[in-house]
């Protein structure tokens, strides 16, 4: 979706405010929210792309103004609502008025010691042949859709060079709709001046990890 979350290249957000050192969580509730997200017994059909797509649909004013972990809260609340696991009234009161069945019991404190080592991987076996190879010139597609995608607006229509191939990874556009489909994933380098012509081209490059469906071949000139 073309939404407020797609911030690359946008103007008007002012200077970056570096911080030398800051606590991992500014407020206790932020750490609790992180803990809830890591510890919750989740339906099998939730995944990271559904989470991201849910967050992207926060009203733009809220996306830009709410604290980061409050956006996590809003997204998980929306997912609980959408899965029929909680009602808005329950979320408001903190009291359960209907019980949930069909989900595994949640992890215990003791189990966290093992589960912290779990690593999610997104590469999958792929029977087909990759369409592109390292050093190929490609163009990022202009095609957009209203669902979740990881092709940022600022790259669309621009040409770059494939610099790495990573095998097939689960496609976010599909995964966010509950379809676990893998496709070749490439790292593509774009000259900064190709993406943003006002920038003097002195060799700086922006690299994006892009799925095959986001790319079109460019005939050698």
């Amino acid at each position: 979706m073309d939404g407020i979350h797609d911030l690359g290249g946008e103007h008007g957000f002012g200077l970056v405010k570096p911080t030398a050192d800051e606590p991992p969580f500014k407020h206790d509730w932020e750490g609790r929210m992180l803990g809830i997200v890591r510890a919750i017994s989740r339906p099998r059909d939730w995944n990271v792309d559904k989470f991201r797509f849910t967050r992207e649909q926060l009203p733009p004013v809220e996306y830009l103004t709410r604290p980061y972990f409050d956006q996590w809260y809003r997204s998980y609340a929306a997912m609980l609502l959408g899965s029929g696991l909680a009602t808005a009234e329950e979320l408001a009161s903190g009291r359960s008025t209907h019980s949930v069945t069909g989900l595994a019991r949640p992890m215990s404190a003791a189990e966290v010691a093992t589960l912290r080592t779990a690593t999610a991987r997104f590469d999958r076996d792929y029977p087909g042949q990759p369409r592109f190879a390292v050093a190929d010139k490609v163009r990022a597609s202009l095609t957009a859709h209203s669902g979740h995608t990881r092709l940022p607006r600022y790259a669309r229509g621009h040409a770059g060079i494939v610099v790495a191939f990573h095998g097939a990874h689960v496609v976010p556009d599909e995964n966010s709709q509950g379809r676990s489909i893998a496709e070749p994933l490439y790292t593509v380098a774009f000259a900064l001046g190709e993406l943003f012509p006002e920038q003097t081209d002195i060799g700086d490059k922006v690299h994006l990890d892009l799925w095959e469906r986001y790319l079109e071949p460019v005939a050698p000139s």
């Binding site: 609790r32 992180l34 803990g35 809830i36 890591r38 510890a39 919750i40 017994s41 696991l85 909680a86 359960s96 019980s99 949930v100 989900l103 019991r105 949640p106 992890m107 215990s108 404190a109 189990e111 966290v112 010691a113 912290r116």
Partner: peptide, 12 residues
């Protein structure tokens, strides 16, 4: 609702 254990939240 039995969907989370507060001890696990503390641990994370």
């Amino acid at each position: 609702k039995g969907l989370v254990d507060s001890g696990a939240i503390d641990a994370w």
